[in-house]
Structure formats: C-alpha cells, structure tokens
Design a protein around this nucleic acid. Structure first.
Length: 311
DNA sequence: TGACAGGGGGTGT
DNA sequence: ACACCCCCTGTC
C-alpha cells in the first residue's frame, strides 16, 4: 500500500471565490482541451488535476454551475493560492474576451457565444514546455499518456511515501519531473515513456537547461518576442511549441500558436487557403490584437466541436 | 476478439 | 518535401 492522493483525507469542499458559473463543456474545454494534460474527468461533473506539486479536485455544482475545490488535507493550504494563480492568473476571462474584436468578426462572436467563460490557464512554465515538447503529431489522449508515465516514473511523489510504479495508476501519485530531474534520466528510459522521437528532444533540452541554470526563469520574464526567440533555440521547440509554452505557461496572451486545427479554421473561416503557418500567425496577431492567443483558444474549441459534430 | 492499416495539435534537415 | 517514432482508432 502506498500513500496516494486517493487514500489521503481530502479537505472539505470550498467554494471558488468567483461568483461565475461555467457550463460543463466549457470546464471540460478549459481543463482538458489541449492546454494542460494532467486533468481527468471523474463521475459527477468533477475533475482531478495536478500542476506543479499540487493536486486538486474541482466540483461543478449542477444546479448553478459554480465551482468548489478540494485538496488532500496536508496540501490544501498551499493549493489555495496556487489554484487561484493557475485558474485566474490571467484575469477575468469574460472581461478579457469582451475586448476581442467580436463586434466586427461574426465567426469570433459565434465562438465566444459557444464557450462563454473559456479561459487561458496559467501553468508552471517548465512543465508547460515539457508537455508541448511531447505534443508533436500527437493527440491529447496520447500526450496525457506520455506525461502520466513521465510523472509516475520520474517525478517526485505528491504525498510522502508513494513508490514509483511501472504503469500509471488510475489516479496521479507523482508530479511531473523538473528539468534538473529530467537531465538525470537516460534517453532510453524516456523512450520507455512512449515518447518516441520526442525523447531525444527532451533529453537534449534537459541537458542544455541543466548546463544553463536560470535560463528558463530568465526566458519566462522576457518580453514575448525575445522569449519566443530564445525558446526556439531549444531542440524540438519550433514556433508552435514556443507559442503554446508562452501562452499557457507564462500568460503571454499575444502568443498565437498555429497548429493544423487553427490552419484549417483560418483557411475555412477567414479565407486564408494556402497560407503558411507563419503567415497565418501574423494575420492572427494583427487581426485579433494583443489577446490573439485567447481568440485562438476560442477558435480552437469551436473547430474541435464542429469536427465532433460532423463525425 | 484480434489483426491490420492509416494517420496524427511538429520539428529538423 | 520527408523522415522521425509508435500509439490510438476505426475497420474488417
């Protein structure tokens, strides 16, 4: 028997301070829509998630849509401010969305209306980079599988006494490894976490970061353009991964990641057939303005919804 | 139930 | 343009 978040006593449910209510599909899109890869749905409109060394459950009240949260008792005190930063670190999502140019953009207006209250998470910078280094040509389910294995095999236990397991348990017991921890993991063991060719990128990035203490923290504090340029020097990090890291892990809402979904969406909805990702990214930043990344997340959610409905 | 293609939210050469 | 790596999903 090992100590796990599930066997520990959990704190009483506490009401999320915001008065806002969230629809179930918006909560799902926020937590499990490709920004983060360590949330799992539980029965009854509940979610269990890990970020940094924190584990929390979120519960959506089916009556009014408001949120409550709980954490393992020993971790609850530190979880409170961490959750606030994680969920609300970028400011009131509805107020932010209202500043987007939806009044002159009918498609954007439809997306905002379809996912009211969708927000950009503010995740720990280093593990955001790790998640998106895993993401190349992978779908969310597969990325979640990779990071679960990385965490369970190579990350520190969330609660004292938990042993590392060869296979991921049904609930998370370990946090993601830090970059210094990853630097000590042989590439072959990374491959064992289903990373495939991404294992080399992660091993090389880990070695670089280990040799350059403070590099990642400095990068996080730089202005957007300079931070992106620096991230793109890491092996396995191109424009898309750099933009995702800055958007979801550093609150740089001007970052406009262009993946194949956004490429398709912009081609179909904005007449940009044949444009390259770099051209679409430039268009996005100009058209959507300083919160282009938030607009991107709405477009992305809408496009995935349309694909599911069409299938 | 089990095998078998096909394709995948990107980067580097 | 194409390789990289290999797991998921749908299908027979």
């Amino acid at each position: 028997m090992s100590s796990s978040p599930d066997s520990a006593a959990w704190s009483a449910w506490r009401r999320w301070p915001e008065e806002m209510s969230v629809a179930p599909h918006v909560l799902a899109e926020t937590l499990d829509g490709g920004q983060s890869f360590r949330w799992q749905r539980e029965p009854g409109d509940r979610w269990l998630g890990v970020f940094g060394g924190h584990v929390v459950r979120l519960r959506r009240d089916p009556a009014d849509g408001t949120l409550s949260w709980s954490a393992p008792a020993p971790l609850a005190a530190s979880a409170a401010p961490a959750l606030t930063r994680y969920l609300d670190g970028n400011g009131d999502p509805r107020a932010l969305a209202d500043t987007l140019p939806w009044r002159s953009d009918a498609h954007l207006a439809r997306c905002l209306a379809a996912f009211p209250g969708l927000r950009i998470l503010r995740q720990p910078f280093g593990e955001t980079l790790l998640g998106f280094l895993c993401s190349a040509t992978k779908q969310i389910v597969q990325i979640k599988q990779m990071v679960a294995l990385l965490a369970e095999r190579h990350g520190a236990p969330l609660l004292p006494g938990a042993a590392s397991a060869a296979r991921p348990p049904p609930f998370p017991t370990h946090r993601l490894p830090t970059w210094p921890e990853l630097a000590a993991v042989p590439e072959a063991e990374l491959r064992g976490c289903l990373l495939g060719f991404r294992a080399r990128y992660i091993a090389q990035t880990a070695r670089f970061l280990a040799a350059h203490p403070g590099w990642l923290e400095e990068t996080e504090s730089l202005p957007y353009a300079a931070a992106k340029e620096r991230l793109c020097t890491l092996p396995g990090v191109g424009e898309k991964v750099a933009d995702c890291t800055l958007l979801f892990g550093a609150g740089r809402l001007e970052a406009f990641p262009v993946d194949v979904w956004i490429l398709r969406a912009m081609a179909a909805r904005y007449g940009l057939q044949g444009w390259t990702p770099a051209q679409v990214a430039h268009f996005g930043r100009v058209h959507f303005g300083p919160l282009a990344g938030l607009a991107q997340q709405y477009l992305f959610a809408c496009e995935r919804q349309a694909a599911r409905a069409g299938a």
